[in-house]
Design a protein around this nucleic acid. Sequence first.
DNA 1: CATGAATGAGAATTCATTCAT
DNA 2: CATGAATGAATTCTCATTCAT
Lengths: 207, 207, 207, 207
Amino acid sequence: MPKIGIEPLRRQQLIDATLQSIETHGFQGTTIITISKLAGMSSGIISHYFGSKQGLIEAAVRHLLEQLKLGLMEQLEANPNASHHDRLKMVVKTNFNYFQKSSPATHTWLCFWAQAAHDPELARLQTVNSKRLQSNLLYSFKHLISDPSIANRAARMTAAMIDGFWLRCTLSLQSAEAYKDAEQMCAEFIDLQIQRFGKQHALEKLC
Amino acid sequence: MPKIGIEPLRRQQLIDATLQSIETHGFQGTTIITISKLAGMSSGIISHYFGSKQGLIEAAVRHLLEQLKLGLMEQLEANPNASHHDRLKMVVKTNFNYFQKSSPATHTWLCFWAQAAHDPELARLQTVNSKRLQSNLLYSFKHLISDPSIANRAARMTAAMIDGFWLRCTLSLQSAEAYKDAEQMCAEFIDLQIQRFGKQHALEKLC
Amino acid sequence: MPKIGIEPLRRQQLIDATLQSIETHGFQGTTIITISKLAGMSSGIISHYFGSKQGLIEAAVRHLLEQLKLGLMEQLEANPNASHHDRLKMVVKTNFNYFQKSSPATHTWLCFWAQAAHDPELARLQTVNSKRLQSNLLYSFKHLISDPSIANRAARMTAAMIDGFWLRCTLSLQSAEAYKDAEQMCAEFIDLQIQRFGKQHALEKLC
Amino acid sequence: MPKIGIEPLRRQQLIDATLQSIETHGFQGTTIITISKLAGMSSGIISHYFGSKQGLIEAAVRHLLEQLKLGLMEQLEANPNASHHDRLKMVVKTNFNYFQKSSPATHTWLCFWAQAAHDPELARLQTVNSKRLQSNLLYSFKHLISDPSIANRAARMTAAMIDGFWLRCTLSLQSAEAYKDAEQMCAEFIDLQIQRFGKQHALEKLC
DNA sequence: CATGAATGAGAATTCATTCAT
DNA sequence: CATGAATGAATTCTCATTCAT
């Protein structure tokens, strides 16, 4: 009789091993062997559960995206009464927290993005993720900035700054401090935007 | 007239073919064969001029970095009397122009960065490049913002925003308009910083 | 009422699934998985009932041979008073009917024969089958043609023609008409032989 | 500088090794390794010259077909004044000679035919070959038998008998004698047909 | 009885590198 | 200088078999 519940377990173990392998050996250096060794299983198991290496890779990406998404939703739901200003900062914080905590994810993510240009499925996943960050930001900016065009630009600039800091953190030391700094600067930028273009500010200005 | 050595010519042709191949086939799909086919040469020539595939790859990265660096220097030297405010915008403009014009470079760059995590030489080159952008920005911000700490943060935020927009352009459509938009938003951010923290602003504020 | 053993049932289901799989996926494309899927059972069951894949394959061949043999015996027993001339035609008819009806058998048979060269057991089964056709034909030809040597040649030629037409039908369209044509031509050849070398013909000739 | 004329040589060596391997190890047992070992080359060479194992297999089939075709053409051209009756016997003779001489070909041929059902290219080649034999026979039968329908049937029956004997020889001992016998019986069948349906016979019959 | 998870040897294929010409 | 033939290690994928449940 089949062991019940073993499939989700094995799948997760293999996904974890994949992220770990990419972290350790790089994307190029990651093979069926390095993954299965890290997972403590045989190489054939990957075909068994994911059809192919490619299938496992894509499952790993989907897992990363899901994690990030869940992390954000958790935060937002835990603070249902947060102001939109706070909400923006929570988006920033969650992003950096996620990458800071999950070291394997960081480098893997970059590899996946590099792959995306020649892999339609990865490209699709990447687009979804990229758009989600921007629309999350836009949602709150719209409540804080009357001019939709300015709100839109604020969201895009913030998203770019987040991605840019993420990229720079990933490519350099990745110290906890670097992430903290990045988070603060993004928050500062948000403040600057609100202060300059926000509704209340506009009112104050009139006075 | 001295004959121009055939060696530099061959080397450049191979570097161009490498960038073109990565653009067309992706980093994974780029082999000695795809490169030599595109260059119209034999596969053996790569060992001959670059020792190995890895050597050619690194030469290609160095070429990209050099191009970007030269592009910026050219701009700055062509406008020796530009204000520091203008100088900041020139840095931004040059960056986006470079990537917009050189389509192969864009994707290749991302691949190289993904590789950098497991290739010390690429990592070194990447760090140099990353720091150059930041210090270029910092140099001018220092002249415009009195507080060194704020100038520093302004430079880091601007660098992040540039990289972030670059990343987002690379990963999405890469239309000319997108690059133009990105450039404008970065310029806008610079203005915002100067307006808020700049020396003249400080004076005006006092009045 | 005694319960019919589940074992014979399972064995037959697996043999049927094997033939179906070879028909559908080819001999190379037939695996333990394709067979067990078609049989609606687990892959382990094959070891359980046949020891190995090879065991199942051989059982399937034996089944095909048995079917052909039984088909012929049935016909002959249903017409105990048939003349030897009619008997020959019944042999021909039964052969083509069998293959025409059982589509999976046709291609499978050819695969088995190709395998036979490197599988002693298959070779043995194939020889038995080949000889049976010839001796069946010879048995009747002997009653119709006085010269044993000529009867022998007639049997061999007829067997060859049957096999040849079977091969050509298998390799081409396998339309019902093709089988009908083939059967008629074999019957015609038998007539021709009897007409030319048969006892009655000899008598008539004397007249 | 590339060695001139080495490509055709290597290709032929690999095709020969393929036939030899199928003869020795069977179709299933023939791998890239068995072939390259027999050819005294490395495994990579097969990709280099034929793209894939499949490409080599198909080249080998084409070679066998070509050989058979050339053998027949040679015979026919060497005897330009042969009567159509002799021509028919030459077709028979060439067929059996070819297979008798080339032992590897015999078994290989059967394997290829078994594969044909699931390989369009092999199926195409097989059809061409099958039709060639029949039309070669038909061409001469038409000159000897007035009724086109009867000539057609004669050609088909003869082709079937040739294939049938070939199959039976292949599957059994393959002694030289067996081939000789088969050839004689086919020739005998041709005689029988001409005798019975041929134009001269028709005239005689009228008398 | 029956399952299907897990294994791991073996297959085809790819590709950077070498080297004789 | 330049070629491309040849190599063979490395990689992915397949699949018959085993065995705990």
